[in-house]
């Protein structure tokens, strides 16, 4: 027994969940700021429609599917965590992690395609062709999708860490937190996909 008495809080809201909600709010305003900047420019430059034709809607949609699948398996992992079924947690979370890698592979294929066409972050090709407004679109494309892909990488790392703990039956409540984060990454993609791929 220590010299300190046990602290009894007023309410027992799971504080990890609360913190993740706040983190999600913070991430949304950051992406929100980017998306608003993008929209303002998009409305000013209708000629960006020319550039959006180059984005691959199929791969974008596939990535959406991949992320949503990861979310679904994440939810299953959460359900398994509630029932303390360690094997199932490992199974479902592994599928989520694989989905994350699939997303990244897909994304790098896409990037490779665009870059091989000279559509880089700061496309010199378009600038040389006198279309510097068009090159601005690609700057936005890469910063938005790139920042999102970074979040996917973070998601994979988070899932791996949580999986490793959950495998031994430790910190099962963290499965939920990881899945919440994954949903956020998912939802951001749901915003980015129509903006960058569908609106042509």
């Amino acid at each position: 027994m220590s010299q300190y008495s046990q602290f009894i809080p007023l309410k027992s809201v799971p504080q990890g969940r609360l913190a993740i909600w706040l983190l999600i709010a913070g991430e949304f305003v950051i992406f929100g700021g980017l998306i608003i900047c993008y929209l303002l420019y998009r409305m000013r430059y209708p000629e960006w429609a020319e550039q959006t034709k180059h984005t691959n809607t199929f791969l974008g949609a596939l990535n959406m599917l991949v992320l949503l699948t990861g979310s679904y398996t994440g939810v299953r992992a959460h359900a398994a965590a509630l029932n303390k079924q360690l094997n199932k947690i490992v199974l479902w979370m592994s599928i989520s992690i694989i989905c994350g890698f699939l997303f990244l592979i897909n994304k790098s294929l896409e990037y490779a395609h665009e870059i091989s066409n000279g559509l880089t972050f700061n496309s010199q090709k378009l600038q040389d062709a006198g279309d510097s407004v068009g090159s601005l679109f690609w700057s936005f494309y890469y910063i938005m999708t790139g920042l999102h892909a970074t979040h996917v990488i973070v998601g994979i790392i988070v899932f791996t860490v949580i999986l490793n703990q959950a495998r031994k039956g430790k910190n099962l409540h963290r499965v939920e937190l990881g899945v919440m984060y994954w949903h956020m990454v998912d939802i951001i993609w749901i915003f980015l996909f129509p903006l960058l791929y569908i609106a042509k």
Partner: peptide
């Protein structure tokens, strides 16, 4: 309030470092 300026600062940094034209 900090989200938009965070995004704005990232864009400015990219303008600065790799010469994008945001």
């Amino acid at each position: 309030a900090v989200g938009p300026v965070f995004a704005g600062a990232v864009l400015l940094l990219l303008d600065n470092v790799i010469g994008t034209g945001f």
